[in-house]
């Protein structure tokens, strides 16, 4: 078995493009779910809006990339308003239903034959819409070390992606420790009490939904640019639930949780896959038990098992406080 290769693949994944995408998606969810208690099950919709805004506007409408990015942010704000206006006055479960449906509607529209000309149907859009971005790349040669290995384009995405994550996280940190953040946490605990103290709960929930949605669209930008293509089925419900997994793995309502959760999630996924693949290839695991073609599925089973163990033995996540979690059981 080639352990150097396994380590290289695993560490590259741990700091790689997917980790950045899911960290950003989970940072948005942390604002919604972790701090405000909003059950947004449609985070994939915000990613899709971000990704498709970039791809469609550049490829089909010849927008410059920077304008397409701005439009993507604007579109995610519009989506948040559409979702929030009818549901945020209602009980929390209504938002969950509406968001999960909205994300599916967005995916189905993207796949539909009707808008094939602009959105590319089920094939999505592939093109050089990231050209403006990759033209700026100073690391054309990529990186090749025993632990980290990226090609030129990936390295540029990784560097700018982490810079983006750090900036977003810093702003989040400032926001959640402010009196504004305190109102959000109070809403999570009991919104009627917050109303009785003179705070406009609806307004705060809307602001939280918009901010978390914008961060979700950032994840969509990275998704689209890193692959130079968008495909509707990448933005299904599985993406939302992986983002929740990442968030809860790190510990909800902790600023650094999404990053830690995402790194661990992608490290484990790639590490287990590479281990299995090599073990099967070298004959340590007999062919009748696990075939080479089954490794892809089995890694998800094993990661799922690992996550179940984590929830049993450390339900508060990596950064969470068990004492705080116990308080959830209302006296």
């Amino acid at each position: 078995m080639d352990f150097i290769f396994i380590a290289q693949q695993s560490f590259s994944a741990a700091l790689g493009v997917n980790t950045i995408i899911f960290a950003l998606a989970a940072i948005g969810l942390n604002m919604h779910f972790g701090y405000t208690g909003l059950l947004n099950f449609g985070q994939a919709g915000f990613l899709a809006v971000g990704a498709y805004s970039v791809a469609t506007l550049v490829v089909s409408f010849n927008f410059p990339l920077w304008a397409a990015l701005l439009a993507g942010i604007l579109n995610s704000v519009i989506l948040a308003l559409l979702l929030g206006l009818p549901t945020l006055r209602l009980r929390a479960d209504y938002l969950a239903i509406v968001t999960i449906a909205a994300a599916e509607i967005i995916r189905q529209i993207a796949r539909s034959a009707t808008f094939n000309k602009y959105l590319g149907g089920s094939d999505g859009i592939t093109g050089k819409f990231g050209k403006d971005f990759f033209d700026l790349n100073p690391f054309k040669d990529g990186l090749d070390t025993p632990f980290l290995r990226y090609n030129g384009n990936d390295l540029w995405v990784v560097v700018t992606g982490w810079a983006l994550v750090i900036v977003v996280l810093f702003v989040m940190w400032l926001l959640v420790r402010s009196p504004w953040g305190r109102v959000l946490k109070a809403i999570r605990e009991d919104e009627e009490a917050v109303r009785s103290l003179g705070k406009n709960v609806y307004l705060y929930k809307m602001q939280s939904l918009i901010i978390g949605g914008i961060v979700g669209s950032f994840a969509g930008f990275v998704y689209a640019l890193s692959r130079q293509s968008v495909q509707p089925d990448n933005y299904g419900t599985a993406l939302t639930f992986f983002a929740y997994t990442v968030l809860i793995l790190g510990g909800a309502a902790r600023v650094f949780a999404p990053i830690a959760g995402s790194i661990i999630f992608w490290f484990l996924l790639v590490f287990i896959e590479q281990m299995l693949r090599q073990a099967v290839g070298a004959g340590y695991i007999p062919e009748w038990l696990i075939g080479v073609n089954q490794v892809g599925q089995i890694r998800f089973m094993l990661v799922g098992l690992g996550l179940m163990m984590l929830m049993i033995f450390r339900p508060q996540g990596i950064f969470g406080d068990r004492k705080e979690l116990a308080l959830d059981a209302r006296a």
């Binding site: 009196p179 504004w180 109070a186 308080l327």
Partner: peptide, 25 residues
């Protein structure tokens, strides 16, 4: 508000807080 500290329960209720605006937070 259970998962807020006692002092944060109190501070929350103060009126006309500038830091409660998203623009200043």
């Amino acid at each position: 508000l259970y998962r807020l500290t006692v002092i944060d329960n109190m501070r929350l209720a103060a009126t006309k807080q500038k830091g409660e605006s998203i623009l200043r937070a």
